[in-house]
């Protein structure tokens, strides 16, 4: 592995900063390429009980991206631990990021504690930003006090590092990020999807069955990048940048804004080789821009 791509998330050394985002990646990708080239993987958000998710249609096309309203479909924590993680282990020999969801603070703590005992898990990613569930999800991530309260509870009951995945659907991302840091969070994932809607011009009806959905894809990149830039100046904990990343230039831009690593989401769904292509292209782009080591550029936009 080429060490010019190494990055740190706290004291966790990653071979490279490229991590597929939660909900857009599974061990199925090992049919496309050897997934051990990835920095790590963020698992599909797991809840205490199994969830079927929302009714279909769950996706819609829009200019520059897509809307999704899956609704955190997952088999529940017990099955994820007994079946899903072992399947991953067969194809992936690095530590993973476990994404935690829930309907209540108790649920978040319960799932976090279950993952906390797993050797394969390095980081707990607390999803306070899913826009597609009625209770919990994004509703926990919109307010500083709630974010503080829930982070503190999880932090107090777990040994592993916790990263909070925040919603961009807020007035002031900085205050929420600071609140997460103050509560003891070890890092941040910025950002989840933007809340959107698609309407069929012919019928006038919303296309997605759940009406509202999360907007992702290249169109949201400037917003996500701005939030990483703003938050970086105001917190000391590491940031994983996420939102519309689809190529090596995007990764370099997010890291320049302050991200220590990045997550790739919907790009995986459009081109299954997205993460592999980015990892292959990064050294070429670094050479072109005169970057010796990728970690040297973290936050460099702020010094210029």
């Amino acid at each position: 592995m080429n060490n010019i791509l190494n990055v740190n998330l706290g004291n966790w050394r990653l071979d490279n900063p490229v991590i597929p985002a939660s909900g857009t990646f599974g061990y199925e990708f090992s049919q496309w390429y050897d997934i051990n080239i990835l920095g790590s993987i963020s698992l599909k958000t797991t809840t205490r009980e199994p969830r079927f998710g929302n009714s279909t249609p769950r996706v819609a096309e829009c200019v520059g991206g897509m809307l999704n309203s899956i609704g955190l479909q997952n088999p529940g924590i017990e099955k994820v631990i007994s079946e899903e993680i072992p399947k991953f282990k067969k194809n992936f020999n690095k530590k993973i990021i476990a994404s935690v969801g829930g309907n209540s603070i108790e649920d978040y703590v319960f799932v976090s504690k279950m993952f906390d005992s797993m050797e394969e898990v390095e980081i707990l990613e607390i999803n306070l930003s899913c826009p597609n569930v009625k209770n919990g999800g994004m509703s926990f991530g919109l307010d500083e006090k709630t974010v503080y309260h829930i982070c503190e509870k999880i932090k107090n009951s777990c040994k592993k590092k916790i990263y909070i995945k925040l919603s961009p659907n807020v007035t002031d991302i900085v205050s929420i990020a600071k609140s997460a840091e103050l509560s003891g969070a070890d890092g941040l994932v910025l950002v989840n999807t933007l809340l959107g809607i698609a309407i069929d011009a012919c019928s006038g009806k919303p296309i997605i069955s759940n009406i509202f959905a999360g907007f992702s894809g290249p169109a949201i990149k400037p917003i996500a990048l701005r939030m990483v830039y703003q938050v970086f100046k105001n917190v000391k904990i590491p940031i994983i940048g996420c939102g519309g990343i689809r190529n090596a230039d995007d990764v370099i831009e997010f890291m320049s804004a302050g991200a220590s690593a990045v997550q790739i989401g919907s790009a995986n769904l459009v081109n299954p080789f997205s993460c592999k292509n980015i990892i292959d292209d990064l050294p070429k782009k670094m050479k072109k821009y005169g970057i010796q080591k990728i970690e040297e550029i973290i936050g460099r936009s702020h010094c210029i």
């Binding site: 857009t24 199925e28 769950r58 996706v59 769904l269 299954p272």
Partner: peptide, 13 residues
């Protein structure tokens, strides 16, 4: 309606 078509995104369940 699908997104990935190969089992990753859970859109077409």
């Amino acid at each position: 309606r699908m997104a990935c078509g190969f089992g990753a995104c859970m859109s077409c369940v």
